[in-house]
Design a protein around this nucleic acid. Structure first.
Length: 554
RNA sequence: GCGCCCGUAGCUCAAUCGGAUAGAGCGACGGCCUCCGGAGCCGUAGGCUGGAGGUUCAAAUCCUCUCGGGCGCGCCA
């Protein structure tokens, strides 16, 4: 586990508070933040303002008192100052920051790991697209988000499983099977029509040809129920294979592919219906069965079993989540497309009806993607971006660029993705900016070796930094574990992207400002090579969290 | 009509979930390689944070209202 500077400061504050102001502030009220202005130190706390409200003294006076006690406790860790109307600022000692250099080298790929999750058994379910057609760009955004979030949660100490829910039951799948059958018959010269609301896509034609080759025309002789099942199963399997291939090329791999049909086969839908009835949250109206979701704030009650006797998707989804609970997950995260957001209240209500803990299920909505090309919408309407296949985007810009673009923003906001911009290899394209920093260090090491320097040599007896720029870089390095923690806590991968932009900005500036390899000054060279090495390790670890590659040359 | 998301530089977005002088990139303009990768760096210009109130030591951030945009509101999944 990596050290968290803010935690260390917080511990000291707790000690001081226990002595000077026992019982006045709660732990969650203690906040440490990094400062924007170097003159305000490296970190600051607003604790004096909080105290001021409680003990009715001036913030400035309280800050002074805190400063005195903290200065005693923190001695060789940080210098403590009072500033402004009552801020307490911390100036980290250089030795503390310097100690991070060897720490990062030592921890290597583990640097940045924190124990926020404490092994909590967690499931992230995402994409879960109906197996009725290929993945689109919008699904790609969900995939990137779910996958990266899973990686981040793992790094933060959660035990994570990634799951894809296959909706292979219900009307849409029946329609898919019937559509395939129509294509199958058309190939054989019959005048079959694709059902109304069926699937018109050409991909069913080639699929029908494949089916004909594999099973022959004899399947048409099967009894209707069996026949439809053959078409249905074949179509689902074929499409699922394509989806799996797309995800594979997008570097998204699932631990479990869970089939909706298994819930019916094992009677789990029936089971959940009796359970909800037993708990008294259902009623019958007409001949349909309803769940009283309005008890937990939904706009209206929802149907569980239709008048025709078939359970709704909602019913099987409740069974699915009950199944997750029975599998022992303590935290379940669902990631859905924006068109599902009206679904949240009823799902939340269902969890309540089952008596599950409030924090068991978290639902995230991923907003749409608008694809642009040179500033113009890719197709006629803004929504059209959704219907561009993910495959096409991958072919054009590659997995690294696509993933980074999807991840660099809060998924809850609309994303404008300009393909032309993404294809440029310049600062227009933030992926290259961060990967370039990594490649630069790699090539620097080659050069250094040529000249007889090895980056692994001792840091040397540095007790302070050769330059302010280097101090700033190490400070950012030391802040990486905090970034991981925060990113996991807020479920926001984009914070990692922001961090990378920031770190790489500092690194590129440093690189342009100073010469790193200097034959006349081997000691300084050694220090700087190690600094670069540490930057490279952190970049690589951060890239891993985003699922993008760490190129040695570009 | 109701609900959710979002309005920050010309454009795309940050701002460490209430902190100190609101920051980056792109675009515009001007500079930097005899030397470790110029896919880079440095500088200039650009803002009443959509608008109006309120809460407090402190508001882009929280509350109310309002204006503008997106998406939902099936016994589809």
């Amino acid at each position: 586990m990596s050290r968290l500077i803010t935690e260390m400061l917080k511990e000291e504050m707790k000690k001081v508070l226990a002595v000077d102001f026992p019982g006045v502030v709660e732990e969650k009220e203690i906040s440490i933040e990094s400062t924007r202005d170097r003159n305000h130190g490296d970190f600051a706390t607003n604790l004096a303002f909080i105290l001021s409200r409680k003990v009715k003294k001036s913030p400035r006076e309280l800050a002074t008192k805190l400063q005195a006690s903290l200065a005693q406790n923190l001695g060789n860790f940080a210098r403590v100052e009072v500033a402004g109307g009552g801020f307490v600022n911390f100036f980290l000692q250089d030795e503390v920051l310097l100690s991070f250099i060897s720490e990062v080298v030592e921890e290597g790929e583990d640097f940045g790991a924190v124990d926020l999750g404490k092994g909590k058994k967690t499931q992230v379910e995402f994409v879960s697209v109906n197996p009725t057609g290929p993945l689109h760009v919008g699904h790609g955004k969900c995939a990137a988000f779910g996958d990266s979030l899973s990686r981040i949660l793992k790094k933060a100490g959660f035990q994570v499983e990634k799951e894809y829910y296959v909706n292979d039951a219900g009307r849409q799948i029946d329609l898919l099977g019937a559509s395939l059958e129509a294509r199958f018959r058309q190939i054989l010269g019959e005048k079959a029509e694709i059902p109304e609301d069926g699937y018109q896509g050409d991909y069913l034609i080639s699929m029908a040809e494949k089916l004909l080759q594999e099973k022959g025309r004899e399947i048409l002789d099967l009894p209707p129920a069996e026949r439809l099942k053959v078409f249905r199963t074949f179509a689902v399997q074929e499409i699922l294979n394509d989806i799996r291939q797309d995800l594979d090329d997008f570097r998204v791999h699932f631990d479990v592919w869970f089939r909706e049909s298994s819930l019916y086969q094992k009677g789990e839908v029936e089971e959940i219906l009796s359970l909800l009835k037993e708990r008294g949250y259902t009623y019958t109206k007409g001949s349909a069965l309803w769940l009283r979701t309005t008890d937990w704030g939904d706009d209206k009650d929802r149907v569980l079993v239709r008048e025709n006797g078939l359970p709704t998707y909602f019913a099987s989804d409740i069974a699915y989540h009950w199944n997750k609970w029975k599998r022992g997950f303590q935290l379940v995260i669902d990631i859905w497309g924006a068109d599902h957001h009206g679904y949240i209240p009823r799902m939340y209500a269902a969890m309540q009806a089952l008596g599950l803990p409030q924090d068991f299920l978290e639902m995230f909505i991923v907003q749409f993607v608008t694809l642009l090309r040179g500033g113009q919408p890719e197709r006629m309407s803004t929504r059209q971006g959704e219907f561009v296949p993910l495959r096409q985007l991958l072919d054009e810009v590659g997995a690294d660029v696509a993933r980074y673009y999807f991840l660099m923003r809060d998924p809850a906001t609309h994303l404008e993705f300009d393909i032309e911009e993404a294809k440029k290899q310049s600062m227009d394209n933030p992926v290259y900016y961060v990967q370039y920093a990594h490649a630069r260090v790699s090539s620097l090491f080659k050069e250094a070796e040529k000249r007889g320097f090895t980056p692994l040599s001792q840091i040397g007896a540095w007790s302070d930094f050769p330059s302010e720029e280097e101090r700033e870089i190490v400070k950012k390095i030391a802040y990486f574990p905090e970034t991981v923690k925060r990113s996991a806590l807020l479920r926001q991968p984009y914070l990692i992207c922001n961090y990378l932009q920031d770190l790489c900005g500092d690194f590129h500036s440093f690189y342009n400002l100073y010469r790193i390899i200097d034959e006349n000054n081997p000691e300084l060279t050694s220090f700087r090579l190690n600094l670069c090495r540490v930057v490279q390790i952190v970049l690589k670890n951060a890239f891993q969290l985003l699922g993008i590659s760490a190129p040695d040359n570009m």
